[in-house]
Nucleic acid binder design. Structure first.
Lengths: 195, 195
DNA sequence: GTCTATATCTTGATAGAC
DNA sequence: GTCTATCAAGATATAGAC
């Protein structure tokens, strides 16, 4: 498949538009014409850059995961304590959500997975694997350093924390008084922190 | 709007089919024809029972919330300890998810909320309000009885627990080795339980 | 690389017979 | 209540000129 780093400037604007539309309406909620209008070109020109909708969505997810990995590295470079790292991680989701209640690209696509091409589902799975692995690693370090309670396994912390963040965005969309991913995640972090 | 308790036997089968389709593919992922095929009648007959797709989805969510409330009452009648009640609550989500990775109706609709009629969004919001209120009440009782740690507020426990369950279904769909809502929720419960 | 034009299909919804 | 027939709109995708 195409790699996001090898595409033209226009194709990148197509990916930008598609990413935003997926975060707002989901894969089944946007069309090539929506993308075309956002980019300012005609529908068939989108097909020139991405032959199928599935391929376009796959590249969106691919780039999204890549950028996430960059952010994870940055967090490790800027923070040492597990709590600070996990808080900064939650801020990634909060920043996304604060833009018009945008969802995580792969949270949205994960929900829609049963009607997605395999190509897309594969990229979504990679995103979740990357995140669970990183969170597990961070939790393990934090426990070894005596910063996090060891009542849960590192894997347990990882899957719980990720689920909270993805879920809080859904719930926050569904209800008016939803408080957002960062706030909800802070509850869990509090329960895991040594007094 | 129509109330689910006042509809005919055929209309109920329509709601059954629509519910299942929403849980599998979402609002934007199914059509009147899909419903018609599941029920075994033709597309215009669906319109006879529900004039618009929005109305159909709203009744699905309305009935779903009603049944959820019945389950919540049952849980209160069958379990006394907060942990047992919260575990039984998680089992509701687990049971849904164990059917072909079906999502919570209102979790799916919540994710899609930006492309849904107001009528539907209103019902989805009611679902979340009902759940957060009930969980808050259960957590409060559990803390007063000394069964749950008081490091988090009852409201904090409620929004965290609901987010975990909704999120775990999304994540469980997106990755192969996802462990399901019940398992993930048990981690959080463990962290909240007095040793 | 972008365009006009078009093919083909599916969508939600309506009209009107039975 | 269900059907056949149909509509107008929108979907993904392709052909071919510029």
């Amino acid at each position: 498949m195409k790699h996001f780093s090898e595409i033209s400037a226009t194709a990148e604007r197509v990916v930008d538009a598609a990413e935003s539309l997926i975060q707002e309406r989901g894969y089944n909620g946007f069309s090539y014409d929506d993308v075309a209008k956002l980019v300012g070109i005609k529908k068939p020109s989108i097909h020139h850059h991405f032959a199928t909708k599935g391929e376009l969505a796959a590249v969106v997810a691919q780039r999204y995961t890549h950028r996430f990995k960059e952010s994870l590295l940055q967090i490790e470079g800027h923070h040492v304590k597990a709590q600070d790292r996990l808080t900064a991680y939650a801020d990634l989701f909060e920043k996304t959500f604060s833009t018009n209640k945008h969802l995580c690209v792969c949270g949205m696509l994960g929900a829609e997975s049963s009607s997605l091409p395999d190509l897309v589902n594969h990229e979504v799975e990679r995103f979740f694997d990357v995140n669970v692995d990183w969170l597990t690693h961070i939790a393990q370090d934090g426990q070894r350093a005596g910063q996090l309670l060891s009542v849960l396994s590192p894997e347990g912390i990882a899957e719980t924390y990720l689920s909270i963040l993805e879920g809080a965005m859904i719930v926050g969309r569904g209800m008016q008084k939803g408080t957002g991913p960062s706030h909800v995640a802070s509850h869990f972090l509090k329960a895991l922190t040594i007094a």
